[in-house]
Amino acid sequence: MELTVNQLAERRLSDFFHKAEGSGPEALFADPAAVAAAVADGSDPRLYSAARDALAPRVTKPGRGGRLGQGFGATLWSADLVTYEGGTLPGGEPFRSTGHWNPADQLEIFQVFSGRVLMLTSVLDESGDQSYVSYQECGAGELAVVPFGAWHLTYVLDGPAMVFNIYSGPADVAGGGTGTDAAAYSTFSKYRSHRGPAEVTATRSGTGFDIALSAKWREACGDPIEVSCPTWLDAHMPPSGLLTDLHVSGSDADLDALLALGGTLSDARPTPTTVLAR
């Protein structure tokens, strides 16, 4: 299967800092002062390159009442390929993604093709007690799922690392979107939220890592929880085990089922495999 590069987005360290009022992504660093000083001194490594629409987008038609059974219409599935560089930032963080909040009804699935990454995820339930921070180490071939409406960030433990992902959205967003859909799925809102970034970071510790939460985030979320890929995803993966094949050849029914199942991840705190009490 041939992956293409229709749009290449490169992120350097300086891109995390506002170059003009209201621009630039929001990000929290373990040592913001050290990172800012390094950029001011001219350090500007490339952290990753993202090939947007590495596989052609596809649309699944609404079934049984529409997307999620709520009549939202057809679903657009997009596929990106991100190549992360290996390295360590001032302050001890591995090279990383920007980190952002997903829309409230978006399912996102990742598969690592090469290297080793740490996926950090946080759900912040402002109306209840289901807030949590989870983490998952992923090597080549392994899958990770981001719950609806969650914040997530990728750290590169062993790089370079190549990560493929697919994600859902309203089909009309392909044509520019309308109203709430357009705002929720825009590039600007993806990296700039009224919530600001989750107050969670990871730093290297030998061949492993330490995860740190702000006092506010720890009070809301408790200790970080280790998770693995949910077993319900296995039943819908193709025999090859490749997410690329699921995107291209998976049935509309399989993708609709995954979208419905994906919402269950946000209903409660995950069952811990390990609790990282740091």
Rank of each mutant, 00 (worst) to 15 (best):
M1D: 03
L3C: 03
T4K: 13
T4Y: 10
L8N: 11
A9L: 14
R12C: 08
L13A: 04
S14F: 05
F17Q: 03
F17H: 06
G22T: 04
A27L: 04
L28G: 06
A30Q: 12
D31N: 14
A33Y: 12
A36V: 01
D41I: 04
G42T: 12
P45Y: 13
L47V: 05
D53G: 05
L55S: 03
V59Y: 05
P62N: 04
G63R: 13
R67K: 09
L68E: 01
L68W: 12
L68A: 06
G69P: 08
G71W: 15
G73T: 07
L76W: 03
W77K: 02
L81G: 00
E85T: 12
E85Y: 12
G86W: 00
G87C: 11
G87K: 05
G87R: 05
L89M: 14
L89V: 15
G91T: 11
P94F: 02
P94S: 13
G99A: 06
G99F: 01
H100K: 00
W101L: 09
W101A: 00
D105R: 15
F113L: 10
G115E: 02
L118E: 00
M119Q: 10
S122V: 05
S122M: 09
V123A: 06
V123P: 01
L124Q: 06
D125C: 08
E126H: 13
Y132S: 05
V133M: 06
S134T: 10
Y135V: 09
Q136F: 02
C138Y: 01
G139H: 14
A144I: 02
F148H: 06
F148Q: 01
G149R: 04
A150L: 08
T154G: 03
T154Y: 07
T154E: 01
Y155M: 04
G159M: 03
P160F: 05
P160M: 04
N165M: 07
Y167N: 06
Y167L: 14
A171D: 00
V173P: 01
V173F: 06
A174I: 12
G177I: 01
T178S: 14
T178H: 14
S186I: 09
T187N: 10
K190F: 04
Y191D: 05
Y191H: 08
H194A: 12
R195D: 15
A202E: 05
A202N: 07
T203E: 12
T203H: 03
T203G: 07
R204K: 15
F209E: 03
F209D: 00
S214A: 12
A215R: 15
I225T: 15
V227T: 15
T231K: 08
W232L: 08
W232Y: 13
W232K: 07
L233C: 08
D234E: 12
A235Q: 13
G241Y: 06
T244Y: 10
S249F: 03
G250R: 02
A253F: 08
L255P: 00
A257K: 13
A260N: 11
G262N: 06
D267L: 12
A268E: 12
P270L: 06
T271S: 13
P272Q: 05
T273S: 09
